[in-house]
């Protein structure tokens, strides 16, 4: 079975983002960019499937400008076999990415697609579900455990207040939650080797996908600062106030 892992280049989780003064976007000039943490978990899961003999090949794919090859190389360094870069300088929104990935899934005859549940920049939490819809595949989102057995992916999902276990016919799409695994570090020799591995490149046009954005961002603002509220004089007063707020 071939496993496809989609990875996204995003601002590093340690960076405090700041809205630009002109309110058009957040300022990403010279900040550290990394592989989206949920995508790292996806790569790790795929590598583990390969190590356990279930996956024959792990392919990492990313869509975007040339810089995202850096994240593909990170995926290769972690153990992916090859990488595909879908080149596009357009602003890629989840529906467009899902369409691009759908083409790759078809071309490569993929048995399992693993994606992060969401990226820490857009926080959309959509691409995996959209890809599953377009490809007519079942989806196991927010996965905290994945077992492949008898032609089925048994996925444990983190749902509100508990866990749900579902069985998915293969091929299927899985999106990762934080507790699925703890990603490994890439070793120095593997990073070095990954630099020399080829990255296949294809454009969105070549894949025949219209990636024009459906959403336009009119403005980006800082979240409103919280104002200080009311002083209460005693515990009793506090409890009364909480009851008025309807949170007790």
């Amino acid at each position: 079975m071939k496993v496809l892992v989609a990875v996204k280049r995003v601002v590093d989780a340690s960076v405090q983002v700041r809205v630009k003064a002109d309110k058009t976007a957040v300022d990403l000039a010279n900040v550290k960019m990394s592989m989206n943490p949920f995508c790292e978990i996806a790569v790790e899961e795929a590598i583990r499937l390969k190590e356990s003999g279930i996956a024959e090949e792990v392919i990492v794919v990313s869509a975007g400008e040339d810089a995202c090859q850096e994240q593909l190389r990170a995926g290769l360094a972690l153990g992916a076999d090859r990488a595909i870069h879908i080149q596009s300088d357009a602003e890629l929104q989840p529906l467009a990415v899902a369409k691009l990935l759908h083409k790759v899934v078809d071309q490569e005859n993929i048995g399992l697609v693993i994606l992060g549940k969401q990226s820490i920049d857009g926080d959309n939490n959509q691409t995996g579900q959209m890809l599953a819809a377009l490809a007519g595949m079942p989806q196991g989102t927010f996965a905290s455990n994945v077992v492949i057995e008898n032609g089925e992916a048994v996925v444990t999902r983190e749902v509100d207040g508990g866990l749900q276990q579902i069985g998915l016919k293969l091929p299927a799409v899985v999106t990762t939650d934080l507790r699925l695994n703890e990603p490994r570090y890439a070793s120095l020799p593997n990073i070095m080797k990954a630099k020399r591995k080829p990255v296949a490149q294809i454009t969105a046009e070549e894949l025949g996908v219209d990636v024009a954005p459906r959403l336009s961002t009119l403005e980006v603002n800082d979240p409103p600062a919280r104002a200080s509220g009311k002083r209460v004089g005693s515990v009793v007063e506090l409890i009364d106030a909480l009851k008025v707020e309807g949170v007790l």
């Binding site: 926080d123 459906r214 980006v220």
Partner: peptide, 14 residues
């Protein structure tokens, strides 16, 4: 909200 709530985007869909 985007960026874990650190930026609020006003978006318009076509």
């Amino acid at each position: 909200p985007t960026y874990a709530g650190n930026a609020l985007a006003k978006v318009k869909t076509s």
